[in-house]
Design a protein around this nucleic acid. Sequence first.
DNA 1: GTGAAAGCGCTAACAT
DNA 2: ATGTTAGCGCTTTCAC
Lengths: 391, 391
Amino acid sequence: MDRNVTDATKGVKGPLRKADMSTDASRRRDVTVADVAKAAQVSKAQAARALGNYGAVSDDVRERVQAAAEELNYRPNELARSMNTGKSNTIGVVVGDIENPHFGLATRGITDTAKKSGFNVILVNTDEDWAAEVDAVRVLLDKRVDGLIVAPASSVETRHLRDVHHSGRPLVLLDRTAKGLDVDTVAVDMEGISHESTRYLIEAGHSRIAFISTLRTNDSYATGLSLGSSQISDRRDGIMRAFRDAGLKEPDDLVRFNADGPETIKKITRELLQQPDPATAIIASDGLIGLSVVEAIQDLGLAIPDDVSFLMYDDFAWTRLTRPPLTVIAQPVYEMGVAAAEALIRQIQGRKAPAAKPEFAATLVKRGSVGGPSGGKGGHDGLRKENLPAT
Amino acid sequence: MDRNVTDATKGVKGPLRKADMSTDASRRRDVTVADVAKAAQVSKAQAARALGNYGAVSDDVRERVQAAAEELNYRPNELARSMNTGKSNTIGVVVGDIENPHFGLATRGITDTAKKSGFNVILVNTDEDWAAEVDAVRVLLDKRVDGLIVAPASSVETRHLRDVHHSGRPLVLLDRTAKGLDVDTVAVDMEGISHESTRYLIEAGHSRIAFISTLRTNDSYATGLSLGSSQISDRRDGIMRAFRDAGLKEPDDLVRFNADGPETIKKITRELLQQPDPATAIIASDGLIGLSVVEAIQDLGLAIPDDVSFLMYDDFAWTRLTRPPLTVIAQPVYEMGVAAAEALIRQIQGRKAPAAKPEFAATLVKRGSVGGPSGGKGGHDGLRKENLPAT
DNA sequence: GTGAAAGCGCTAACAT
DNA sequence: ATGTTAGCGCTTTCAC
């Protein structure tokens, strides 16, 4: 009746085959549409249609097939399905560090949104290493993901991303832009918020403002140089513009990169604070850095904001727990993850861009960690002038 | 010469086809082994062998094939490859909440380890929802992942996991155990550390110790009842055992579940602290809860540890930043992620279990948030008796 | 060492 | 509505 199934035991293979007792749980070879078809007494095609919910199927057949599938415990092989449809219902997400709550939150936004549209997420961590990113993108492409969301480690070395885009694969950039790549990008205006925050510090009386970032680079600190990361370039540029606006000397010497790991960060912080013409305020480029900077300040026996003012990117919940609570630059991270996923899925489904692209803005959340420069003469930021007791 | 390739334009399909100009970047249909084979003047089989690095291939052929592949920009279709090999080189990871740094860190351990062995990770978030977990497992299985790492939302409803195990798919449990499921499990002894921590609090003079957990349940708080989660049951049991050991009345009334969301947690905290016979110490079952509890305590104008002692699970870095720094129960989360991945990969590769399974222990890190009960008479925990100023 | 041919489990024409 | 026949891109016998 159905020549498709040539032999009942065909395809049994692999080392896990034990015995062909048909009741034992431990036998290999999944049940396929062919099996279901046979059990339901219909052609493979009809069974497939009923199972895959496409084409025309009579109620009678549908019922029989579903019953048979249930009975046999049939499960579709999504790999095979993807092969013919060309869609894997999977998107690749490439981030620098999932351990960083910033990406944790963004990833949550992405997965939540993906799930709603029936997509799964393959997550790859690059450790902000460019080579690892190139590799990740290649592997994901080989796995035939339907699209990619990438937080590029470099905004200069973007060949691999341009290739993706040119090949027609949907691609969305998260957090940072990439040079010469005109694709959907979900990011905030860093230069603007950086400028605003710096002006705030300057107005509080600071002229010696330090900036610490993890960015791995050998570049000099001079303004204008396009650093490896758009994010960081923009932040530094915003800082410097604020200084120029105020007619102040730009504190080029207080910009520090390569701050990887708690110890390095603490060391940098100590240097910044103990050198001849020290920083009176520090801006940490992310929450992980901020943590270590604050710790170093405490270790030094200095008080925030009386001895040194502090500002950081990312509004993590714990920043409200310190005394004083920390002044931060908040970014709608979760929402950005959602937007990135939405944009990607829209691309995948070939729909046009929405009327208005969502714009995301970072905001300066003034709490208690910014005051006047050394001497604590002016509590500018907080209501109270609490400070962190020395250790 | 090679009948495999019947027509140069076969398989061209899909809406993205623009023109068949063979130089334009925007043409569909990936290059396949057949293409490479033709270009290299060898059979499809030989090309595949050279490309896939298996079977016997002469140096000459290998070179020609590789050159052709390079030239044509060939990339293997991992989906097709997976179909016949039966291995996808992908593992599924199912966690409750990737937004929680606890899982963020564990996930990092998993992905790092997976990458080393050439595995990718599909990450699914269940929001600690059982139905979502069942679904996640099914979807991952359909995608033919080579194995699963699951942090089960429930240790009671484990049918889906038992099915996975019985079907022979490699499975490793993370963080919590599952009833009636004897598989590799990477978790710490919660009952023990809970007992130890509670004893520590009791010795400091506390007899009214509260425990707050997110666990969603309708169960009563009575000891011995197996709650939905092994983790939480064990912690509660450890607490109660410590009380029994000390001959003290078990504070059943201070055990609170369903603490989802900051507002609920704060409300619970207020109730616990303001009721007639209030709690003098609070144990938060994870860092997210701890955050809100501390915030609520601050809002109440209470001081830690003078007015109320505090202890929480998870040694997040920020717990060192508060004044006083928080006493916590540290778990080797990253290492546990690594171990889970290693165990899974071992199963996948069919190797035997290592001589000794790694044992993971939680440790009580005594910092400054535990003191004597109300009145601040005895600074038991910290060196200094700093406290959190009221807001 | 090499090639022809048969699958993997499914979808997709194309008939009927 | 249903069945037949080709594939998808790769690996894998099985001959030679």
